[in-house]
């Protein structure tokens, strides 16, 4: 055996593995491409349809580039479309939802941060039971609490109002926000709290100056989570509000279901796009924080 005989089979097998690897990558990319089409297809149809006039939809097929693009359906969806009996478009309901989503996101986030921190710092009997109950709160289905919650809101005089819906989302959001923050703070080295204690900071000072600024990544996650789940909520909205007080998802439903005769697909599609846009934008702008936040704790920071 000399070096030459040993070396000769090497290049051939190297070529073979290179080809195999190439084929593997091709398969991966092809699969991904199919999935991209699958997911983007409906969005494509929505956008193109929303830019067509009703005549064009009537004549042509659903799929196809609009021949005479128009933004009239978007304008109609925003300000003219009939939601139930009022033909106001989505705009008042959009504002309703902003009015709903801001406090219903910020309040549980703030309380959840404090709760979560307290659960990791203050030792008390039954701590684990409290945490288990909070977890249970996360996994309680909406439907199970719908009637008791409606009764409570009724007794509080908040039935049918946006404020009532805010309260419902605050209460329902607390277990989630507490759990998120608790799981974040549990990963913060205990030495930090000790150092702050030696520095003379009390519980709230440590929370305010040391812990809260550190929790920014998880706070972004919590805010996105709360924002999207409230924005996209339909069940609470339809159960606890009515008439002009409904949030955007309920309004969207009303737009689609209140059209009579010929369906204005273009306006429906534009309305759906308008209703989905805020959550989409949140992900576009804060998505990287979202991923970073979900990873926080797994990597020592």
């Amino acid at each position: 055996m000399n070096a030459a005989t040993l070396a000769s089979p090497m290049p051939r097998s190297a070529v073979r593995t290179d080809f195999g690897r190439l084929l593997g990558w091709a398969a991966v990319y092809f699969t991904l491409f199919v999935f991209v089409l699958f997911f983007l297809g409906p969005l494509f149809v929505m956008i193109t349809t929303s830019l067509k006039s009703i005549e064009e939809i009537r004549l042509g097929t659903l799929i196809g580039i609009p021949r005479h693009p128009t933004i009239q359906p978007w304008i109609d969806a925003w300000s003219n479309a009939c939601v139930g009996v009022d033909c106001t478009g989505l705009s008042p309901f959009f504002l309703n939802t902003i009015y709903l989503v801001v406090p219903a996101t910020l309040i549980p986030t703030a309380i959840g941060a404090l709760n979560g921190y307290a659960l990791t710092q203050v030792n008390f009997r039954g701590q684990n039971i409290v945490y288990a109950i909070i977890l249970f709160g996360c996994f309680t289905p909406y439907q199970a609490i719908l009637i008791p919650l409606a009764q409570t809101l009724g007794k509080l005089g908040l039935a049918g109002t946006i404020n009532g819906l805010i309260l419902a989302h605050v209460v329902y959001g607390l277990p989630f926000t507490t759990m998120f923050f608790r799981n974040f703070f549990i990963s913060v080295p205990s030495d930090l709290a000790k150092a702050a204690r030696i520095d003379g900071a009390g519980f709230f000072q440590t929370f305010r100056y040391v812990m809260l600024p550190m929790s920014l990544p998880i706070m972004v996650v919590v805010i996105i989570w709360q924002f999207t789940s409230i924005w996209n909520d339909f069940l609470f909205g339809v159960a606890f509000t009515s008439g002009r007080n409904v949030p955007i998802m309920v309004a969207l439903n009303n737009i689609v279901s209140s059209s009579t005769g010929e369906r204005p697909y273009n306006i429906d599609m534009a309305s759906a796009m308008l209703a989905a846009l805020p959550t989409l934008l949140v992900y576009v702008f804060a998505g990287k924080y979202f991923v970073r936040g979900l990873m926080a704790g797994s990597v020592k920071g």
């Binding site: 930090l192 150092a195 702050a196 520095d199 003379g200 900071a201 040391v210 600024p213 920071g301």
Partner: peptide, 24 residues
């Protein structure tokens, strides 16, 4: 106290880390 992990406040500058006790 000087901790094994240093326990520096990660969101504060060095200046604020040193000053934190005095600030409190």
């Amino acid at each position: 106290m000087v901790f094994q992990s240093y326990a520096l406040y990660p969101t504060m500058t060095v200046r604020d880390n040193i000053a934190f006790g005095m600030k409190v």
